[in-house]
Simulated assay, not measured.
Amino acid sequence: MHNTFIAIIQGIVEGLTEFLPVSSTGHLILSGQLLGFTGDKADTFEIIIQLGAILAVAIIYWRRILGLLGLKTVETGEAVQSGQPKLNLLHVILACLPAMVLGLALHSVIKTYLFSPYTVLAGLVLGGGFMLLGQKKQTAVQAATIDQLSYKQAVSIGLFQCLSLWPGFSRSGATIAGGLLSGASYSAATNFSFLIAIPMMIAASGFELLKSIHTLNASDAGFFLTGFIVAFVVAFLAVITFLKLLERLKLAPFAYYRFVLAAVFLVYLLSQ
């Protein structure tokens, strides 16, 4: 019963935070500390439930994904600026490559030195500050829709995504704020952020799963499945809700939430 409770709680945390600009990794590390759920099994569980979140966003964007793969024509009805190609697979590759290469090169360093509660709290604060910067310094919109993004903007967003290699910084926070600084609208930046999350998370989760496959046990199948399903359902609802609210809420409320969360957990950690 205790394992089921942990699976549900961590599944909810993953589903709510994976695609919101608040850092799912940071939240899972902090909630794992509270639940006493740490170690190799916890690390593997986090990978499994991330796959549930990936499936949710892949279903939401299935038409766009098939279009990028040349398997379906995507009729968006969106005007494309002269001289700029409609969103294609090269945009996605250019945006994913920097973080994939840097993440692979620094993997052992990140795992060794940056996955502690205190470094996560630092990431929450720094990421929140960057989100406020992106909102305040947003440049003139050059891409109102995802199909108006240029290759240069894709590269720029990809470079900003490298900031999220610091646990707690938030991949979606870095890419959405980076998109605003690159001349994308909130809608374009958010949709592109969610879209490039799919290959990024598949690559990262696949790599980590191969390294931790020895920790998988048939007796844990129900535990992992529960977390996977909960993360899928919650992530699906969270993404749909966030897409509707972002234009009105902007990034500031999520940044302030990160500051409060960091302060609360700092007090908790210091009291232990």
Rank of each mutant, 00 (worst) to 15 (best):
T4N: 09
F5V: 15
A7C: 09
I9K: 00
I12R: 02
L16P: 02
L16Q: 00
E18L: 04
F19H: 00
F19R: 00
P21K: 00
V22L: 04
T25A: 08
L28A: 04
L28C: 08
L30H: 05
G36C: 09
F37R: 01
D40V: 14
K41I: 13
A42I: 11
T44K: 00
F45G: 00
I47A: 02
L51G: 01
G52Q: 00
G52T: 09
V57I: 15
A58M: 14
A58G: 09
R64D: 04
R64S: 04
L69W: 14
L69Y: 14
L69S: 05
G70V: 12
V74G: 02
Q81W: 08
G83S: 08
Q84L: 15
K86G: 10
N88M: 08
L89R: 05
L94A: 03
L97N: 01
A99G: 11
V101D: 06
G103L: 05
L104Q: 11
A105W: 15
H107S: 14
V109E: 15
K111H: 15
K111A: 13
T112I: 11
Y113S: 15
L114P: 09
F115Q: 07
F115C: 08
P117W: 09
Y118N: 11
A122R: 03
L124Y: 13
L124R: 02
V125Q: 01
V125S: 06
L126Y: 12
G128F: 10
M131I: 13
M131Q: 08
M131C: 08
L133H: 05
K137V: 05
Q138N: 11
A140M: 11
A140S: 10
V141F: 09
V141L: 08
I146M: 13
Y151N: 08
K152Q: 15
V155T: 12
S156N: 07
I157T: 06
I157L: 15
L159H: 07
F160C: 10
Q161C: 06
Q161V: 12
C162H: 02
S164A: 15
S164T: 12
S164L: 05
S164K: 01
S164V: 08
W166L: 10
W166I: 04
S170K: 00
R171F: 12
G173M: 06
G173V: 05
T175Y: 06
A177D: 06
A177Q: 02
A184H: 01
S185T: 01
S187G: 10
A188H: 04
T190W: 04
S193Y: 11
F194V: 11
L195K: 05
I196K: 00
I196T: 03
I196Q: 01
M201R: 00
S205R: 01
G206L: 08
E208T: 07
H214D: 14
T215M: 12
T215E: 14
N217F: 12
N217R: 07
S219K: 11
F223V: 07
L225R: 01
G227R: 01
G227M: 06
F228C: 05
V234D: 02
V234W: 06
A238H: 02
A238S: 15
I240G: 03
L243Q: 09
K244D: 11
L246P: 06
L246C: 07
L246H: 06
E247Q: 15
L249A: 12
K250N: 13
P253A: 07
A255S: 11
A255Y: 07
A255D: 06
R258A: 03
F259D: 01
A262D: 05
A263V: 12
L270H: 07
Q272V: 11
